[in-house]
């Protein structure tokens, strides 16, 4: 054993964290750091790339290398970092705003290119940091501070989107399922190519309060009830499916990642050279 524990990846001087009581982010941070420990990765080998938002603050508490960039661009920065040094383990932590609202373009293209990195997307169905406005994953008629009567827009299904764009590994769980989440993150990091872990998470302060319940416990139970294993989900009627979402590994492919393919096609001795 490496002797690493989740604490090996936390920057204790930065704690306590700023998240609201009952927020799912703390559970996800614990699962992420436990996954790193179980994978025996040294903090010096890992770059955590974050976006902007509640989950985007996660780098503040981490003792891995970190790159806290601009809103929506985490995957574009992460792409450069991974290609700049392919030996690094690169993990992008994003919220639903970062990943598929302002940053949707980078999300589909990172999946299409199959960049060898892992995206852990915390989907809490709204923008928590700025006060609970709707995002591109807020469900139709979901109430937020900018959709007081319910939003007229349907929400994205992140996993479908990633699969359609070409991601190698796609999995979903919730912050209720902490152990499954840790294992999923381990699998995602170990998997070559673009891996997505969507964590449906709880924001009791905003989305919960407006749509479910302000109690963190009730929010977690709500997530537990909504999540059904993918096999069971497939057997459900359309009406039942609309009330639930599928969890567990949804895509598991072995398409070669971008760097491997680029290197295969562009060998340094390639004859395309020639003086102008």
């Amino acid at each position: 054993m490496s002797g690493y524990t989740f604490k090996s990846y936390l920057e204790k001087s930065q704690l306590p964290h700023m998240w609201c009581p009952g927020c799912g982010d703390g559970i996800i941070l614990r699962a992420y750091t436990e996954a790193l420990a179980e994978l025996c990765l040294a903090p010096q080998e890992v770059v955590t790339v974050t976006g902007i938002g509640c989950w985007g603050k996660a780098d503040d508490y981490l003792g891995t290398h970190a790159f806290h960039g601009t809103h929506g661009r985490a995957l574009a920065f992460a792409t450069g970092i991974k290609l700049g040094n392919p030996d690094l383990t690169v993990v992008a932590l994003m919220g639903d705003g970062d990943a598929v609202t302002i940053g949707g373009n980078h999300f589909i293209h990172a999946a299409r290119r199959n960049i060898n990195l892992t995206a852990i997307v915390t989907n809490n169905y709204n923008y928590g940091m700025t006060g609970g406005q709707y995002s591109a994953t807020t469900p139709l008629e979901g109430k937020t501070t900018t959709s007081p009567n319910g939003t007229a827009e349907p929400g994205f299904d992140l996993c479908f989107l990633a699969e359609a764009a070409g991601a190698n590994f796609v999995a979903r769980t919730t912050c209720y399922h902490a152990v499954a989440l840790k294992n999923m993150i381990k699998e995602a990091i170990s998997h070559q190519g673009f891996s997505l872990v969507e964590v449906v998470s709880s924001c009791p302060t905003y989305f919960g309060r407006f749509n479910v319940h302000p109690s963190p416990v009730k929010m977690l139970n709500w997530l537990k009830d909504k999540a059904v294993p993918v096999q069971k989900y497939r057997e459900m009627s359309a009406a039942e499916q609309a009330e639930h979402f599928a969890v567990s590994t949804l895509v598991n492919k072995n398409r070669p990642d971008f760097y491997t393919t680029y290197k295969r096609i562009n060998r340094p001795d390639q004859s395309a050279k020639g003086e102008e």
């Binding site: 790339v49 790159f67 574009a76 792409t79 450069g80 980078h106």
Partner: peptide
């Protein structure tokens, strides 16, 4: 994304 990627690669 272009400028983000070069910033990332430079940081690496």
């Amino acid at each position: 994304g272009s400028i983000a990627a070069i910033i990332g690669a430079s940081a690496a």
